[in-house]
Design a protein around this nucleic acid. Structure first.
Lengths: 136, 136
DNA sequence: GATTAACCTACTAAATCTATAGGAAATACA
DNA sequence: TGTATTTCCTATAGATTTAGTAGGTTAATC
């Protein structure tokens, strides 16, 4: 299941991209427009800023804005920051690899075999979609 | 992330398929071979039996066995029983559809748009893999 | 009738998710 | 200078899910 955090983060990014203005948008406005708890959204936008997706400005007329062109924001990086690994098991993860403690040999593991394919197919989707592609 | 339940369930099914004997295999044997807590595995095999994947026999010489040919067990059905919906959000689920309460219009939702593609790509993998394909 | 092994329910500990609280820091504007 | 605005940041709490355990029941075998 996709976490609410990721869902809300994606919606916020999409909203900012659709606005298409360089002036900052307040958390309150995004939260209201997307039906998200403002405080929760606040923490999500914070991590998006800390990870280089958003810029921010404090005080009156402040808010958040996209730093890059939506065309240059691939879903792979957004998903990794918000949701974590794209792979469903650590032993097939490209960026978060970890060995399974119960599995003696990955090459003989049926789960590994299946989840490798799932990872690749998901990766292809995320690579083929930028933030710009999500705007209808 | 894939749950341990699904992971262990897949491993157990693969083990049974690789054994290729029609005689029942005890939980203890599967648990030992796959490094799984026996009690936990017990509950997993129970749901696999209740959902028509396994047969069982009690008493001495008892255990679990595959009811169908591995070729006839698609990963779609295994995953749905063990892990639940294949879709990452209910609003794009084929078998577990639910409307999002925060989303006024699915057709305009960027999350829906992206997750629809992810679902389709995962579905293709699961449809192209039967239990027989997981045996190396 | 003793042993074996699945069956079943209930419970618990830990982790994760989804927020909320409350104030600090910076900016704008009068 | 001072007040309002809005982001920044840490801590925490409640709910849910996950992973696993406990303990006894039922059915089959020998």
């Amino acid at each position: 299941m996709l976490s609410k955090k990721t869902k809300y983060g994606l919606k916020a990014l999409t909203y900012l991209a659709s606005i298409d203005s360089k002036s900052p948008v307040q958390i309150a406005e995004i939260a209201k427009h997307e039906n998200i708890s403002q405080k929760f959204l606040e923490s999500i936008l914070l991590t998006l800023r800390r990870n280089g997706f958003l810029g921010s400005k404090k005080g009156k007329g402040g808010g958040y804005y996209l730093i890059k062109d939506p065309k240059d924001i691939p879903m792979t990086s957004v998903m990794r920051v918000l949701e974590g690994p794209i792979a469903m098991v650590p032993c097939v993860s490209l960026n978060f690899y970890e060995k399974c403690d119960d599995c003696p040999d990955e090459n003989e593991c049926s789960v590994n075999k299946l989840m490798l394919q799932v990872r690749d197919s998901a990766l292809e989707v995320y690579r083929n979609n930028t933030l710009a592609d999500l705007i209808s």
